[in-house]
């Protein structure tokens, strides 16, 4: 863990942090150590299964754009489509309804 927060970091220190990050990632694989990978994967996949996935729907140039509140490997959301397994759900904007 870093001893500093961003508020305690100068612009130059922040630039150095970013430069070093990019250099290091470009020179390595940036992977999770195998020794802890499986435990974290199984722990998080079980926990995330129980969490709801919230979808934000906006209208951009008369098209629906759906944005999930997080990335989730088994639910794919792009544009106005949601893929759950082999099922593709396509959402379309309906006209205004009068009740």
């Amino acid at each position: 863990m870093s001893p500093q927060t961003f508020a305690e970091m100068s612009e130059a220190e922040f630039d150095t942090l970013l430069d070093d990050y990019i250099e290091r990632e470009a020179a390595s694989y940036g992977e999770v150590p195998a020794e802890i990978f499986f435990d974290l994967l199984l722990e998080r996949s079980a926990a995330k299964t129980r969490q709801p996935l919230h979808l934000e729907v906006t209208v951009v140039d008369d098209h629906l754009v759906i944005t999930p509140d997080r990335e989730m490997g088994d639910v794919i959301v792009r544009g106005n489509e949601v893929l759950v397994g082999e099922r593709r759900l396509v959402f379309q904007l309906a006209g205004a309804a009068q009740m």
Partner: peptide
């Protein structure tokens, strides 16, 4: 894989570890 963890529904996953 870990960040976007989800139920493991596929038959296999090819992955790279350190």
């Amino acid at each position: 894989f870990v960040q976007a963890a989800a139920p493991l529904e596929h038959d296999f996953y090819i992955m790279r570890l350190v």
